[in-house]
């Protein structure tokens, strides 16, 4: 009941809410969250700042092929075998679809600033 009330109230507050519900479709968000933990090495939404491959807009089948190759050891890797082996086949398929749908763009760089002597 609380939930309905809450949502009812939220509705009054605008269209952006409708959009957010869409974005929250559970399985999609689960994959988005998992994909976000790849960002440490592959950049925001798979757009790497260099050094590691960009995953955004990679062909889905190619993505799956590479991940399965890392998983079974047929494709040599420095680190990706550790990650690929921890993921299920379904997760790999979902991640392939997620990254295939991300636009390729130049990522923003973290803004450097002279050290101010903090901490």
């Amino acid at each position: 009941m609380m939930n309905r009330l809450h949502i009812g109230m939220a509705l009054v507050c605008g269209l952006s809410w409708a959009a957010s519900l869409h974005a929250q479709d559970s399985t999609a968000q689960v994959t988005t969250t998992l994909a976000a933990s790849c960002a440490a090495c592959h950049g925001p939404q798979g757009n790497s700042l260099g050094g590691t491959p960009t995953l955004a807009a990679l062909n889905k089948d190619y993505f799956i092929q590479r991940m399965q190759g890392f998983k079974n050891g047929s494709i040599p890797a420095t680190v990706m075998h550790q990650h690929a082996r921890g993921l299920t086949d379904d997760e790999i398929i979902a991640l392939a679809a997620y990254f295939a749908a991300q636009p390729r763009q130049t990522p923003l760089t973290a803004p450097h600033q002279a050290f101010q002597g903090a901490q």
């Binding site: 960002a39 440490a40 090495c41 950049g43 700042l49 050094g51 420095t78 680190v79 990522p107």
Partner: peptide, 22 residues
């Protein structure tokens, strides 16, 4: 340890900084 992984470690830093700070 290898210099190839040294390069990837630098890439990790650039990417996690970008993910966190932009």
């Amino acid at each position: 340890a290898s210099s190839q992984e040294g390069d990837y470690a630098q890439a990790w830093a650039q990417n996690i900084w970008a993910d966190t700070l932009t």
